[in-house]
Amino acid sequence: MTETPIDLDKHRGMAAQKATDIRRVIADVEANAKLLRDKQGVVEIEILSAPATSWSEAVAKARYVLNLYAAGLAPTDTHHRDLVAAVLADLTRLSVEDS
């Protein structure tokens, strides 16, 4: 038995290699999506666990919720996307003015 692994992909056709690459990418994306969902759950539990103690914390929470809402909007829902963008711009402007 040899110590070096054998690259089996070299012995397969291009179509099979591409199919394997696609499966690997999909598996990576799914693993990353699960990790992101887990992190999102932690953030949301933290947001719910205690009230904001400052305006900057309240703004950070509002930004998070608005971005979450905007992510669920249909791409064609430009009216609500514009509303979210306007509110986020207001939050940014007012945060800078308070600094």
Rank of each mutant, 00 (worst) to 15 (best):
N67G: 11
T76Y: 07
A16H: 08
T76F: 07
G41P: 00
I22C: 08
A58G: 06
K10A: 12
D98E: 15
N67W: 03
T2W: 13
A86H: 10
L66T: 01
P51S: 06
A27R: 03
T20R: 11
T92R: 11
D77S: 07
V96A: 11
D77H: 06
T76L: 09
K18H: 07
A50F: 08
D98F: 13
K61W: 06
R24P: 01
A19H: 05
A52R: 03
H80N: 13
M14H: 14
A74Q: 08
S49G: 13
D7G: 01
D38M: 03
A15H: 12
D21Q: 14
K10Y: 04
A85E: 05
D98A: 15
D38H: 04
I6M: 09
R93G: 10
K61S: 06
N32H: 08
D7E: 04
P75Y: 03
S54P: 02
I6L: 15
H79P: 00
R12S: 05
A50E: 13
G41C: 00
L66I: 03
L36A: 08
R93E: 15
A27M: 00
A60K: 06
H79K: 10
I6N: 10
K34F: 07
D28F: 04
V59Q: 03
D77L: 04
D82Q: 09
E97G: 04
L66K: 02
H80K: 12
A16R: 10
L83W: 04
K61N: 11
A50K: 14
D7W: 00
A27K: 02
R81P: 00
A86Y: 06
V87M: 07
V87W: 05
I26L: 12
R93Q: 14
V65P: 00
G72H: 01
G13T: 12
D28G: 07
L8Y: 07
G72L: 01
R63P: 01
V87I: 15
V42G: 01
T20C: 02
E44M: 08
D90H: 15
A33N: 11
I6R: 14
I22D: 12
T4Y: 09
A31C: 03
L66Q: 02
Q40R: 13
S54N: 03
I22L: 15
K61F: 04
S95P: 02
V65H: 03
S99H: 14
A19M: 07
E3P: 06
D28N: 09
N67H: 09
V42I: 12
L48I: 08
L91P: 05
L66W: 02
S54C: 02
T92H: 13
L8F: 10
K10S: 08
S54D: 03
V87L: 11
K34I: 10
E57H: 05
S54R: 02
P51Y: 02
I45C: 06
A60Q: 07
T78L: 12
S54Y: 02
H79R: 09
Y64G: 00
Q17G: 00
A27Q: 03
M1D: 08
H11R: 10
R23F: 06
